[in-house]
Amino acid sequence: MSAQVRDADHILETRGTRRDLGAHVVACTFAPDGMAAFGLGDGTLRIATDGDWTSIPAHEGAVLALAADAKGLVTGGDDGKLQRIADATVTTLADFGSRWVEHVAATPTHIAAGYGKRVALLDTAGKLLKTLEHPSSVTGLVFDAKGKRIGASHVNGASLWFVAAKTDNPRKLEWKGSHTGIVISPDGENVVTAMQENALHGWRLSDGQHMRMSGYPAKTKAMSFSRNGKWLATSGAESIVLWPFFGGGPMGKAPTELAGGDAALCTFVACHPQHEAVAAGFSDGMVVLADIGSERILPVAGPGGRGAITAMAWHPDGARLAFGTETGFAGVVDFSKQ
């Protein structure tokens, strides 16, 4: 290991904990008890407890989606099950048979699970409230910041549903092509999808204005709005690409690019829950924290030997960051640690 790489691992070594979990890290999040949780390709959920991390068998095949809510953790798997994990016990909330549960999102009051063309909306106890139908398979699922609407991406656009609506007619956001992921801005004003053709598409909801953001060398797999909604951080380029959602942007504006310079692709982004900063992971395993205003870059974990970053999550208090890679390397860093 070179001196530079050792330096790049300084934060992880002095303020972090790490494990080799041995299976693809599909998703990570923080449970309501504050523990970092990792959903893996071997079907287990690993909890970053002291000593040996707890391993909880959650699915027969692979964990495909993970979310935290007030009661604990919710996972979806390629065994067709939607599971609730609380107090280290697994309860099946729903079983969708041969359909993979590829997307899970949660608010304090609701759980949404995407399987095939459908999204099941459940209450936190697991009672099915309604099933939302889409024209093709759901490829991304997100609640808005208030938990009042659900956005789902699919072929030829996205559908926006009201959680509490009695009649189930979504607002259809249309744009030809395959949309592969979705985010909603914190103010609920903008919906952005990632597309198969290495580009993003957006809709401003107030007036239906379309937004097109392109120029990526690879597909964008992660998108994250900054806390105040001014910036949309994205993966898919050899830097963190940030689109300005202010001053008339992103239309006609060039994005800001941070932490570029290496050949490695940015594979994951997660904006800080309080400050105008973004954590980003790269295809060579490097993790950095970038301050958007000052453009300062803090290395968190060094590149090499750990595979591409496939998951990242902040604790809501903004002090801790969890991340994992395709080879099963996982880390939790505490920035507040003295």
Binding site: G22, A23, H24, V26, L40, G41, D42, G61, A62, L64, D78, W100, E102, S136, S137, T139, V155, S178, Q196
Partner: peptide, 18 residues
Amino acid sequence: TVRGDLIRIVGGLMKRRD
């Protein structure tokens, strides 16, 4: 024309350990 479902399925299968 391409099969969007296959892109998703191949991606999902590659995450499995077995």
